[in-house]
Amino acid sequence: MHAVTSGSRFALAGLLSGALFLTAAGTASATWPPSKGSQGDTKQSGSSNAGTLVSRVTYSGSVRSRGSGTAVQPVTDWTPPACWYEPRSVAEFKDYVETMYTDTINTPGQANYAKAAVGQFRDIYKDGKYKNYNEDKAADGNWWVAVQNPDRTDDPASWECSDLPFWVANNDAPGVPQAVTPKILAEAAYNAIQLPDTKVTLAPADITKVNLATWAWLDKAEFKPVSVTASLNSGGLNIQATTTAKPVSLRLEPGTSDAETIPASGVCAMNSDDSIGEPYAKGKAHLTPPCGIKYLRSSSDSAFHLKATITWQISWSGTGDTGANLPDGTFGTTQDIKVQEAQAVNR
């Protein structure tokens, strides 16, 4: 059994490569600290998670299951942060290091290089450059540690926050570009949003006819803005950000080139009442729908795979700041639709 966890390996990476030093912090920023207080009532988990450097950020609202693969997809070349730096109190950091050291040294069969590395890591903060984890300065500052976005641990970018834990005095800037801020929390929340399944309502439903305009619309009661709040309360820092996704348009892709979309672009914009498309009602069979599809050939014994993709406008606001919009995102699903040979149908 190997007691060095992924979080431990993260902190020890520099040691194992012979880099037994702390990366120097940069110049202080006039915008630090990012907050003078907190907003909202999102609660922070009380778990210390001793033995591994995991993020203390908590999420609330419309939060998707981790690893579900249903994340909103940015329309531009943009990705949420894969790692960042967070503060820890002296007591929390000491607990982390001592627990990691004890677990590693006492694990049967533990590799000697791992024992040596964790011992060297501990020496830096206990008896080396620092003395006893700066306990005599506990009221004057905090340790800042690198953490990975728990939803992106498989991304090589999650290892870019490679500085070993470093000391930052109260109200000083951490001096690293990935130091956690409300904006970073907003970007992390972007990746955590759970959006509703993008299934459009069709008339006729499931089975339609060749050359018949099929009406398409979204239920505005279901497709409404959704939000996720990311909060961090650690090492004297108490900040949060809320990221909101609002549906703005629907794109229809018929699943065959033998079809016409209405409008021709296939993009149905949001109406003034926040609906998309128009529900079919009796007596409208002779009308052209504002949003829909006309299939020009049958699907025979199979079905066409209609893809419906919603574009979501993403905005955020946070502690001490109201940010600009984040990149729009898309989220789509497919649904089967059978098309039969016929020129008309009674409704």
Rank of each mutant, 00 (worst) to 15 (best):
S227E: 03
V118A: 06
L185D: 06
S55Q: 04
V147H: 03
S231V: 07
E253Q: 11
R9M: 09
P150V: 05
N49S: 15
G318N: 02
R347L: 12
A203W: 14
S47V: 12
P225H: 09
A188P: 00
Y85D: 05
W167K: 01
F93K: 04
S299K: 14
D273R: 02
I193P: 07
V200M: 12
T52N: 09
A19E: 07
G14V: 08
P247N: 11
A188L: 03
K224Y: 05
V72E: 02
T242M: 00
G332L: 12
P225W: 06
A111M: 15
T208H: 04
E135N: 03
A269K: 13
S89R: 08
S45I: 02
K294C: 00
K131S: 15
F331C: 00
P108N: 12
V345P: 09
E135G: 13
P290I: 03
N233F: 04
I239C: 08
K137E: 00
A245K: 03
K307H: 11
K282Y: 10
G37L: 09
T5A: 10
W215K: 01
T322S: 09
S48W: 09
N346T: 15
N238M: 06
Y96Q: 13
A245R: 03
V75W: 04
S265Q: 03
V90S: 02
F166I: 08
N238T: 10
F121T: 05
V176E: 09
I314E: 06
E278K: 15
P225C: 05
Q240S: 13
S65F: 06
W312V: 11
P196T: 14
G26L: 12
P81S: 07
D321T: 10
P247K: 09
S29C: 01
A11N: 15
K294I: 15
K126D: 13
S6N: 05
V147A: 07
Y295V: 07
N49C: 11
S8R: 08
N132M: 04
V4T: 12
K137Y: 10
P289S: 01
D258I: 00
D197A: 14
S257P: 01
V345N: 14
G18N: 13
G323F: 11
N170H: 03
E341F: 09
N170W: 10
E160N: 03
C83H: 05
I293N: 03
I337Q: 01
G323Y: 07
E86K: 04
G283A: 07
P74A: 13
G128H: 01
V180W: 05
V339R: 12
L252S: 01
K209C: 02
K137V: 04
W159V: 00
K131V: 15
S17K: 14
D77R: 14
G61C: 01
M100Q: 13
N134Y: 08
A82R: 05
N132D: 15
V267G: 01
T229C: 00
N149D: 13
Y96H: 10
I193Q: 02
A28L: 06
N171P: 06
T31A: 02
R66M: 12
V75N: 02
R88K: 14
A3F: 13
S249I: 10
W84C: 00
Q340V: 14
S68H: 00
A259Y: 08
P156S: 09
P196D: 06
T70Q: 08
T198C: 11
E98H: 07
P290V: 05
T319M: 09
T52Q: 13
R152L: 11
V57F: 02
N191I: 07
A216H: 09
E278M: 08
A30R: 12
